[in-house]
Design a protein around this nucleic acid. Structure first.
Lengths: 334, 334
DNA sequence: CCCTTGTTCTACAACGTTGTAAACACAGCC
DNA sequence: GGCTGTGTTTACAACGTTGTAGAACAAGGG
């Protein structure tokens, strides 16, 4: 039995609008009236009805965060997005899209339909067309580098440069047979960029990229890294370094390497990507590319707020938050 | 510029209600009319306005999942809750409460106010009173064993029995100086239950619990486990087993043990709690108490749906999903 | 032909909120 | 007393939706 403005109004003996005015700290309310209304408000435990507000003024104060999965990196990012949004008085609706295209469409389409004022999405399976179609007027900010050609706001670290730095770090250690873990037969999006950075680094040192040093995967989970490393070592037992396209792959790799009797970093040096908290505690601790996650979250929310409050269409913007390579024992020894 | 029923109606040349009837598959619509309306619906890209629906019929089809943090266990659980809710046509709004009392109140109070139809909460800092006060009519299901005395639906594994089983597992391995990691000076909620199970197991084997085998922590993060183990080993270098109240503590412990030159499980056997995915890939893989997470999620959503659809007050129910101990190399060797 | 029954469609009200505009009270001033 | 201005309060409409009630029409039975 929720309490409405009407209920409060009748108890306080004023009009609905006056109660609304008190709730919103409208200045022209007589102090005595304000006190009386406030008391009724408190006594009755009034809570505004967000649906009605939203219906009335077209804003819900809620944004959607659509993530393919709640893996560690996305979880850490989600925490930061929630905090950044909170500072702006926004509530975040976290949606796990599962990376299935249909569902992601539903988010950008269905949920946005009046539940949220905007969406921050990390699209795994949406095409540029999907985004274009479903956006129509609904503010969207994309996380990650896919679809960068679409006219949409965009937040992503420079994956090519970061991947290149990670690979160079391994080369600097004197490793020459650096494998890439996370490649794909038909690389797209993030995979393509990291793969490019990896190859750039090799070529810059005069090392020829070899297909046999690719560890192809379907997904970016621990088990994919684990399986791929077993396959990789079977084919190329001389691998002496591993650049993993994300940390989960690296954790799977660490385990597989151990099972194959390779010491890390002595026999094989390993670098990950994302710098999730687990990196500090894995054995050995994992060297990783650390995107400035607070900056990513802040930029995403900031861009979205901007776009939500924009009256006129705004030129799509791209933000490239900083990153750095955090060297730990998986490359530089104990 | 969202499309409303009115817009579609005027294009299709029918009344608003007829469009609504088509949208809802109301049977008494002439096929020709239905086709005409459906075409307009599709052409114009009509999307229902959830706020208006919610306002009109008091249901939003959204439930809140309020978690203290997006740590691995909660992330895995959240995924399952989202899936369980999806099967029932519900959208989940994940809210990271941060474990701060004020915020958790806001969720059970503020957000519930008409954004969601119900709340699944894992309360860390709410008192029984808080829950009682803020519930009033709003369906709530609690995860975890705190506040079990409150008249609220409740889903939690039998923490005492599970903790006891974990401790017994260590004792069965012949360990006699089993430390508990995650204790508190003033144990409450989950901590108190797991501590009780731990002590029950010891006493059942005629082992006297010792205060010096407690590893007190503030929080349940990796770093807390790490710090506590360093302190513990400084005080009691004879520890030969470690029962950690959650997996993150255990991961911190694994690292600290390694730094102190203890081999796992040879010198110290380690058991965790929650069985997060990371357990399979840690080095060594971590023995852990594995709650049936899908069952937990299913039960929570099921109870909530029941309560949401209940006309009359329903007797509060408690569900205890099963759990099992998954033995891995951190206790049973490589 | 009227009456009933069934199908198809519509008008209206209401959910709770807030912006607009206007009403009202009461100063101070000509 | 009428005017202007300022402060305080209110009535009304509208946001998009759906339940209720009933209108309009056709078919079938007496």
């Amino acid at each position: 039995m929720p309490v409405s403005l009407k209920d409060v109004a009748s108890v306080a003996g004023v009009s609905i609008k006056t109660v609304s005015n008190v709730v919103h700290d409208y200045p022209f309310v007589r102090p005595t009236t304000r006190a009386r209304v406030q008391k009724a408000l408190d006594d009755m435990g009034y809570r505004p009805n967000f649906s009605a507000r939203r219906l009335r003024n077209g804003r819900s104060g809620t944004i959607a965060l659509s993530l393919p999965e709640l893996t560690p990196y996305f979880s850490e990012l989600a925490e930061l997005v929630v905090m950044a949004a909170e500072e702006r008085g926004l509530t975040v609706l976290i949606d796990r899209s599962g990376g299935e295209r249909t569902h992601e469409r539903r988010v950008a389409g269905g949920i946005r339909s009046n539940l949220t004022d905007g969406t921050i999405a990390s699209p795994l399976a949406m095409t540029a067309e999907d985004v274009e179609n479903l956006r129509d007027g609904h503010p969207i900010v994309l996380l990650g580098e896919r679809l960068s050609h679409v006219g949409v706001d965009h937040v992503a670290i420079d994956s090519v440069a970061a991947a290149r730095a990670a690979t160079e770090h391994l080369l600097d250690l004197g490793r020459s047979r650096v494998a890439a873990l996370g490649t794909a037969r038909r690389p797209a999006g993030t995979v393509a960029l990291r793969q490019r950075g990896y190859e750039q680094a090799l070529r810059a040192r005069g090392v020829r990229p070899e297909r046999s040093l690719h560890g192809d995967v379907e997904l970016f989970h621990r088990c994919d890294g684990y399986d791929a490393v077993h396959r990789l070592l079977a084919a190329r037992s001389d691998v002496d370094a591993l650049f993993c396209f994300n940390d989960l792959l690296a954790f799977g790799a660490l385990r597989a390497l151990r099972e194959c009797g390779r010491r890390v970093p002595d026999d094989v040096a390993v670098v990950g990507f994302d710098d999730v908290e687990e990196c500090t505690y894995s054995i050995p601790p994992l060297t990783s590319v650390a995107p400035d996650k607070p900056a990513v979250a802040e930029a995403a929310v900031g861009l979205l707020v901007l776009r939500m409050s924009a009256e006129l269409p705004v030129e799509p913007r791209e933000v490239f938050p900083p990153y750095r390579l955090v060297a730990r024992e998986s490359t530089v020894g104990g």
